[in-house]
Design a protein around this nucleic acid. Structure first.
Length: 815
RNA sequence: GCCGAGGUGGCGAAAUGGUAGACGCACUAGCUUUAGGAGCUAGCGGGAGCAAUCCCGUGGAGGUUCAAGUCCUCUCCUCGGCACCA
């Protein structure tokens, strides 16, 4: 038999698999159990598929192949999540069209994936940037709007004053613009916001219908961060300082835009209310903002303070190790229980996005409040005792109500960028006049003029532009295309303007798993019957970085579609099981990055050692969810194993018709281990067992027939599909190995005739004896006492008791 | 800071509360004379000993148990996520 020629083998079978139907999921095959295996569709970047992708996808592929061999109808699809900043930035730099860039890059990714032998169902390939796909992404948004879950709001963004563009968090390095180094600012602009918070409770409760690994479930629950407590209202004593605004001359005064005579705080510890000695407002709190228009004596200090914290991130502001800063607002409030007058401050450590944006400070109880009180010499009340009955008291007196707050915030859905789905909305001045919707505050109508683009007019196709850079005003470059912006109102037919913001990357990935069920449908996002068959996703493999945002957004969208009746009523949650994969570090033990020059690209190693070796190595590196450093020597070791396997089959093939009992034992133990560990994503130990098996059977004296060799090849098949197929052919198997049933364990070969029992004295191992399997305690004790070493220790004292664990160990407890 | 995960040989790692270090890499010795990242045999946690064997050993300190890497308490350290990267 010739030696292992991976290039020849992989080329030969890759060609055959192009025509192979066994990797296609069959839409509605009721005779078979379905299995929907999903792995995150990648963002196709210019540098190609890297080894991290290869790792996650190999694991998913191994699992999908294993499920297929269990006789299931497996859907294992792949696609491209191709909208996003890196492509846009590359387009800006190179002047190339993002559409063309995406085409080149996805072609490369697909080629790499095929080289790696992934058994994706390519008939279901999707691309989030194709109009046929984003038509439905847009449609979902129109539904969100119609159901009142999307609205325009003033929201802060990072802003570079020099480049005059909005910046992503990632583009702000140490508070500076990544491109030009200018200090970034916070700026408020009108943005689309989606009210995911309306679904907060359902997003928590739904988790109990899933089998997510505990870590992921915890991540989601913590992210939603539900906290029950009380909202307490503190009367403002001197509200007149807010309500007084100077006119242009500076003499007369007029009323503020809104009237406020109390401050509402949220607390999860109302029992400490008596100890509240001051209040703190978030700097963004409307009262603080209103004070800036007033002529309070503190104005200058307030302005200085606001300027000083303007560019701090929330993480910096809430970091307990960093010094807090704040300033007195000039306002005085009244503690509703003690009746005492307490000062109102504003400080960076209170966030507008949580609770009511205001807290009651209890320095005697809360570390942060204490630190702040000490720094600014604010009163501390050490005397009071927290009182459980305070909740009742607060409610009875009408100064507060039970309330729930969430860490989860509404989802900012607008991006002022080109390379995203256009938000399918049109603003009509004319219609705006008809609707009096002032957002409750007076002023111009907010939502009334917005009209959704109806389904018949979808998709709103992303137009070609000259320049991909955002405009000077921070608007998307789409704003420069007059003929596109100017349109007619779908409601009144008059002149109207299109929204020029695009959607965030998440929009396309929220629902992609639905589209895989029916990727070519032109009438609906996917056919109900098909979704009913395939859903829920049985296993979803992804990274930790997506365990909160992507996973939560996508569960939210699913629940929303469920409410609309668009997805099957009997399936309330989209994903049955979520598992998160580990990370591959560079050879130097650091995270892979271009700047460190430690990025591993799989192609090179496919070329050098073959896809089978690479895949098997990736699965052998360590636990599926661990962080592991790349090591080429180890990969070479795995290749040696595959060569050994190849040679082993070669020496046995066709020689014997009967396997000996010892070989049967070894093989059945292998299958048992593979069964148990594959289900549990413990791939590394399956490969270790395969290695042990090959090592054992490579020793002389074994007889193994073709059937048993076949079983062994089947265990290898999910990991090293090409060479396994080749070996399967060599032993006379029928194409394709990957459609064959998984081998069954023959229980009778799992029982050994003799077992090794370790003998301990007072818990210390002193000897190992061989006894017949299933031997009784008395028998084993007798045998153990015959052992010279054991007898020596037993002679030294009295046996108090013996403990025997069948077929495993015997412990003599002595004085 | 908050939340989460994790600390086991020179390295990657195995271990239903029951012989710690399976399997792989590296290394050492011997064989083989091997064009191509070779192959085979043996060894390989630390210490003592010619040896049989004995002692120590899973970040650290306590505890539970006949028995602890595994369970409990405290502690130290490392890594990951943190809402406009995807």
């Amino acid at each position: 038999m010739e030696s292992y020629d991976f290039k020849k083998i992989e080329k030969k079978w890759a060609q055959k698999y192009e025509e192979f139907s066994g990797y296609r999921g069959i839409d509605v095959e009721n005779d078979k159990e379905k299995f929907y295996m999903l792995t995150e569709f990648p963002y196709p970047s210019g540098s190609g598929l890297h080894v991290g992708h290869a790792f996650a996808m190999t694991a998913a592929d191994v699992y999908a192949r294993f499920q297929r061999m269990q006789g299931k109808n497996v859907m294992f699809p792949m696609g491209w999540d191709a909208f996003g900043l890196p492509t846009e930035n590359f387009a800006i730099k190179s002047g190339k069209n993002p559409k063309e860039i995406t085409k080149e890059v996805t072609d490369n990714f697909r080629y790499q994936m095929k080289n790696l032998g992934f058994s994706f169902d390519w008939d279901r390939e999707i691309n989030s940037t194709s109009p046929e796909y984003y038509k439905w992404t847009q449609w979902i948004f129109t539904k969100l709007f119609e159901k009142g879950l999307a609205e325009k709001k003033e929201m802060p963004i990072n802003w570079c004053p020099k480049d005059k563009i909005g910046l992503a968090n990632e583009e702000v390095i140490d508070g500076k613009c990544e491109r030009c180094g200018t200090e970034a600012e916070k700026r408020t602009i009108s943005q689309w916001v989606v009210k995911i918070t309306d679904y907060a409770d359902r997003l928590i409760n739904g988790l109990y219908d899933t089998e997510f690994i505990e870590k992921v479930r915890a991540a989601q629950i913590n992210w939603i961060g539900k906290k029950e407590g009380v909202k307490i209202r503190f009367k403002i004593k001197n509200k007149e300082i807010i309500g007084w605004i100077p006119d242009q001359v500076g003499n007369d005064s007029k009323e503020a835009d809104f009237d406020i005579d109390e401050i509402e705080v949220f607390t999860s510890r109302p029992d400490t209310l008596e100890g509240a000695t001051f209040l703190v407002l978030a700097p963004e709190h409307p009262i603080v903002q209103e004070l800036r228009n007033s002529r309070t004596q503190e104005l200058k200090k307030i302005e200085e303070f606001l300027a000083s914290i303007k560019n701090k991130t929330e993480i910096e502001r809430t970091d307990l190790t960093k010094e807090k800063s704040g300033v007195f607002t000039g306002l005085t409030a009244i503690n509703p229980i003690t009746g005492k007058e307490i000062p109102v401050w504003t400080a960076d450590y209170v966030l507008m996005s949580y609770g009511t944006g205001a807290i009651m400070a209890v320095p005697s109880h809360d570390e942060r409040d204490k630190e702040f009180a000490l720094k600014y010499k604010l009163p501390v009340d050490d005397e009071y005792i927290p009182d459980e009955k305070m909740i009742g008291e607060v409610i009875r007196r009408g100064v507060g109500d039970k309330a729930v707050t969430y860490h989860l915030r509404d989802w900012i859905f607008s991006r002022q960028h080109y390379w995203g789905e256009p938000i399918p909305m049109v603003y009509c001045e004319n219609c705006a006049m008809d609707v009096v919707d002032t957002g409750g505050r007076g002023g111009p109508p907010l939502q009334g003029g917005w009209q959704v683009v109806p389904l018949e007019q979808l998709p709103v196709v992303l137009p070609e532009v000259e320049k991909y850079l955002p405009t000077d005003t921070g608007e998307s470059p789409l704003a420069n295309i007059k003929e596109w912006v100017e349109t007619t109102c779908p409601k009144c037919g008059g002149k109207a303007k299109r929204e020029t913001d695009t959607m965030p990357n998440w929009a396309g990935s929220d629902w992609y798993f639905l589209r895989y069920c029916d990727p070519h449908n032109t009438d609906v996002l996917a056919d109900q019957k098909k979704m009913e068959y395939w859903l829920p996703v049985d296993v979803y493999v992804g990274g930790d970085e997506h365990n909160t945002l992507h996973l939560l957004y996508s569960r939210f969208i699913y629940q929303f579609l469920w409410d609309l009746g668009v997805v099957p009523k009997n399936i309330p949650e989209p994903y049955k099981k979520r598992v998160s994969h580990g990370v591959i570090l560079g050879p130097d033990g650091n995270r892979m990055s271009k700047s460190k020059g430690n990025v591993i690209v799989p192609d090179e190693f496919v070329e050098k050692y073959g896809a089978d070796s690479l895949r098997t190595y990736l699965m052998f590196m360590g636990p599926f969810d661990a962080t592991m450093a790349w090591n080429e020597r180890s990969l070479i070791g795995v290749k040696r194993f595959i060569e050994k396997f190849y040679n082993l089959i070669g020496t046995y093939a066709g020689k014997d018709t009967v396997s000996d009992v010892e070989s049967k034992r070894i093989l059945n133990k292998l299958i048992k281990r593979a069964d148990e560990n594959l289900v549990a994503f413990k791939f590394n130990t399956v490969i270790a067992k395969l290695m042990e098996t090959v090592n054992a059977l490579s020793k002389p004296g074994f007889r193994v027939n073709a059937d048993d060799l076949g079983s062994m090849i089947k265990v290898l098949a999910p990991f090293a599909p090409f060479v396994a197929e080749e070996l399967w052919e060599k032993i006379g198997g029928e194409f394709s190995l990957h459609g064959q049933p998984w081998p069954e364990v023959d229980e009778k070969y799992l029982v050994d005739e003799k077992v090794k029992v370790s003998v301990a004295i007072n818990g210390k191992m002193r000897a190992v004896i061989e006894v017949a399997a299933g031997a009784e305690e008395s028998e084993v004790v007798t045998l153990a006492k015959l052992e010279e070493k054991v007898a020596k220790y037993l002679n030294e004292g009295k046996i108090l008791k013996t403990i025997y664990v069948k077929d495993r160990m015997l412990n003599f407890v002595m004085e």
